[in-house]
Design a protein around this nucleic acid. Structure first.
Length: 429
RNA sequence: CGGGGUGUAGCGCAGCCUGGUAGCGCACCUGCUUUGGGAGCAGGGGGCCGGAGGUUCAAAUCCUCUCACCCCGACCA
């Protein structure tokens, strides 16, 4: 993509309303625009990141055996009356009335709907277990949206729902998603700490939140230093070992009963990017989802649900990965792999070399953002650092004369003067 | 939902107290000079001052109402 034609409204100054670094950088980098309190448009650069994140999530959900569906954003109130939540949910639910006076709502979550799908479509124990997920926009009318995309009213969420015949099956489904979450966040360059969360009415130990550690995190979490010391095999993470390590959010942390010694107990702030929990037959029973068992008995499936805050992740990643100059994208979610910087567009040699590099990168399957604008070098470097592409390939008259290009790694800032071929080799791996 | 605050050009702000018909920086457009870390000079475009009432010869400025947004707290993924 040529930057001269790419819709990238970067800002030199920080908008006044943005208080935390991810919000500031997302606005300055031209990723998002606020439309209303807690409601945002995603501009091309931001949307690319969001889609890369979605792709990783989708990959790992599919690999874990979950199947993608797509449920609507607008739901019928009748469905929620079946579970009793239409009255319980309160003002966070955005209620809508259609022209016929029927009550609708903008879905804050989808337990009722997915349960009704299963109720209508499966009859036999042979059709279980099943895990269905979708990636869809949700709306929760937060009292006070804040922190940009981190706590907004309209947000993109991946939510999966598992259905099993019994508790053992549900536990397998739960651990399966637990492992998938570890892989998912690891692929985004994030270290996610699974902390025990409030299991709600069901009880037990099957509710975990996944937190990214960051100073601006909204939750205080406490965890055993053993977590930092353990190395995980992502191909086959030891879920049981991980679940046995103490980690709890503030509300569940009782200093009197904490099993971890003081000098081993770590306190940190976390951004909640995932939440998984088991809730038994709460919805299946309320909504009459039953299947016939092998002996003709009626079985009410055990359910769990598994959320990831998709639209929150770009902000969480930025909180965890930035410096004073801007964003530092992990390779796996970067909007472009490489920023190709032509320092002097009035110089024919620079232009032809850049055009050539751009073609060769494209042929090698590498997406580059090619800064072909007639701007001064300083502005180009500043924008590149701001938007945080993992690599910067800089072509200027000096290098062209010497037969070299400069390759800079955004993360560490290391720069190398290389021949074009070795630079390309380094990028194409 | 309680408390506090802010709305003036795309962004950041001044002007308001003390009414006289809108200004600065950045960005944008044109020209010239510049060109390896957000250039210089000159010229130019863009705002019914959040909205509605009111006071006044005259309102960005004073009064009333309203809407939006932000911050702190409580709540929540």
């Amino acid at each position: 993509m040529r930057l001269s034609r790419f819709f990238l409204p970067t800002l030199k100054e920080t908008p006044a309303e943005a208080k935390i670094v991810s919000h500031r950088l997302m606005l300055r980098a031209g990723m998002i625009r606020q439309e209303s309190a807690g409601i945002y448009s995603w501009l091309p650069l931001g949307l690319r990141v969001l889609k890369n994140i979605e792709t990783i999530i989708r990959d790992e959900q599919d690999a874990a055996g979950a199947q993608e569906i797509l449920m609507p954003t607008i739901q019928s109130a009748d469905l929620w009356r079946e579970s009793g939540r239409y009255d319980d949910y309160g003002k966070e639910m955005l209620r809508i009335e259609d022209r016929h006076g029927r009550d609708l709502l903008y879905g804050p979550t989808n337990e009722e709907m997915v349960t009704s799908i299963l109720r209508d479509c499966i009859k036999s124990y042979k059709q279980l277990p099943v895990n269905l997920y979708h990636i869809q926009w949700k709306f929760r009318d937060e009292v006070r949206p804040r922190f940009g995309i981190m706590r907004c009213r309209e947000f993109l969420m991946k939510d999966a729902y598992s259905f099993d015949l019994d508790l053992e099956g549900a536990k397998r489904s739960y651990d399966n998603m637990f492992a998938a979450y570890l892989r998912t966040f690891a692929r985004m360059g994030l270290k996610a700490v699974p902390v025990r969360a409030d299991p709600g009415a069901i009880g037990g130990d099957m509710s975990h939140e996944f937190h990214i550690l960051a100073e601006t995190g909204e939750s205080a979490i406490f965890y055993d230093a053993a977590y930092d010391e353990m190395t995980l095999d992502m191909d086959n993470p030891d879920v049981a070992a991980l679940q046995s390590i103490y980690a709890a959010e503030e509300e569940l942390h009782d200093p009197e009963k904490c099993p971890v010694a003081d000098d081993r107990l770590k306190q940190a702030r976390g951004i909640e990017v995932g939440h998984i929990f088991f809730f038994g037959t709460k919805y299946s029973a309320a909504m009459g989802l039953v299947v016939d068992g092998p002996g003709g008995e009626r079985i009410t499936p055990e359910m769990g649900s598994y959320g990831i805050g998709v639209s929150r992740l770009p902000a969480a990643i930025i909180e965890a990965s930035h410096d004073e100059n801007g964003i530092i994208w992990p390779d796996s979610v970067a909007p472009f792999a490489v920023g190709l910087v032509n320092l002097k567009v009035s110089d024919e040699a620079c232009v032809s070399q850049c055009d050539d590099i751009y073609d060769r990168l494209r042929d090698a399957g590498i997406e580059a953002l090619y800064d072909d604008r007639d701007e001064r070098p300083g502005a180009k470097f500043a924008d590149m650092d701001l938007i945080g592409l993992p690599w910067q390939l800089v072509v200027g008259p000096r290098g062209v004369a010497a037969g070299t290009v400069e390759l800079k790694r955004r993360a560490g800032g290391e720069k190398e003067e290389l021949s074009l071929d070795s630079a390309l080799e380094k990028l194409t791996g």
